[in-house]
């Protein structure tokens, strides 16, 4: 392994205060450019794991390295897309995207260029002056994604970003996300409840088990990286979805 991992977990353990064990000795290494989905029954700690990588919450034991340093030290390389669009309602789409760069002291000219580039990426190039409430749910999520991309992160953390959207919108956004990933080459961590979504997007899928949260298995997705709507009809894709679903069911039944 010539390239050092961009995110590395060694025996990472998490508990909140005196509470029960939330994550139990997780080990995982992600190579730059990978797209890793985290899937598992609710309560398996997949969102907690994302928050640990984000540095929003400290690990209890073990080591977690992001870009070779602690998550806190790597904060500038991380961006987070939350379950909700979490847009500031009093700012226009454009100003929402520019806010974090502005707070980091990026010049107005650079900000405007970045804003336009990321809005074009999510196909909302003409909505910079709209207020969030004028957008649909899918559009808001696109803006949220664009805002994260504007930070030009090395690692993008996505916590079930499309969970609240309808099936069609979700599939569209998945395809867009893949295209953006192919172009920008960040490393993605993606929490989801949808096996189909995980298989479609990922290079690897981490299946987690609950009580305490732990990694059950890691599945490599051996599909060509170029994925289109046709991929969803392919034999290999459907087999993999069936396999992962089967695996997930067995994980959930042993947990119960």
């Amino acid at each position: 392994m010539a390239v050092p991992p961009i995110v590395e977990l060694r025996e990472v353990t998490k508990r909140f205060g005196d509470g029960p064990l939330v994550l139990d000795r997780l080990s995982l290494a992600a190579q730059p450019g990978e797209f890793i989905s985290l899937i598992g029954p609710s309560g398996c700690g997949k969102s907690t794991l994302l928050r640990l990588i984000a540095g929003l919450s400290p690990v209890t034991a073990g080591t977690l390295r992001v870009d070779g340093v602690t998550p806190d030290a790597a904060a500038a390389e991380l961006a987070f897309v939350f379950q909700e669009p979490t847009l500031l309602p009093w700012l226009t789409v454009g100003r929402n995207i520019e806010l974090a760069p502005r707070l980091r002291g990026i010049s107005a000219m650079d900000r405007a260029a970045t804003r336009q580039r990321v809005l074009d990426l999510v196909r909302l190039g003409n909505r910079a002056d709209a207020y969030p409430r004028q957008l649909s749910g899918g559009q808001k999520m696109r803006v949220s994604l664009a805002r994260a991309l504007a930070l030009e992160p090395k690692i993008l953390l996505l916590d079930e970003p499309f969970g609240a959207l309808d099936e069609m919108t979700r599939e569209h956004l998945n395809e867009e996300l893949l295209a953006i990933h192919a172009e920008a080459k960040w490393t993605g961590f993606f929490v989801t409840h949808s096996v189909a979504e995980a298989v479609f997007l990922s290079t690897r899928i981490v299946v987690m088990a609950a009580n305490p949260g732990r990694i059950h298995s890691v599945i490599a997705v051996d599909l060509p990286r170029e994925r289109t709507n046709a991929t969803r009809a392919s034999r290999a894709y459907l087999d993999l979805v069936a396999d992962v679903s089967q695996l997930l069911r067995s994980v959930e039944s042993t947990a119960a």
Partner: peptide, 25 residues
């Protein structure tokens, strides 16, 4: 709460959070 979390993710200072988040909201 979600917006506070977002600002935490950006590692903004208390003053920036007050001016750009708490006061407008």
């Amino acid at each position: 709460r979600n917006l506070v979390e977002l600002f935490a993710m950006w590692r903004t200072g208390r003053w920036q959070q007050l001016v750009h988040l708490r006061i407008p909201s």
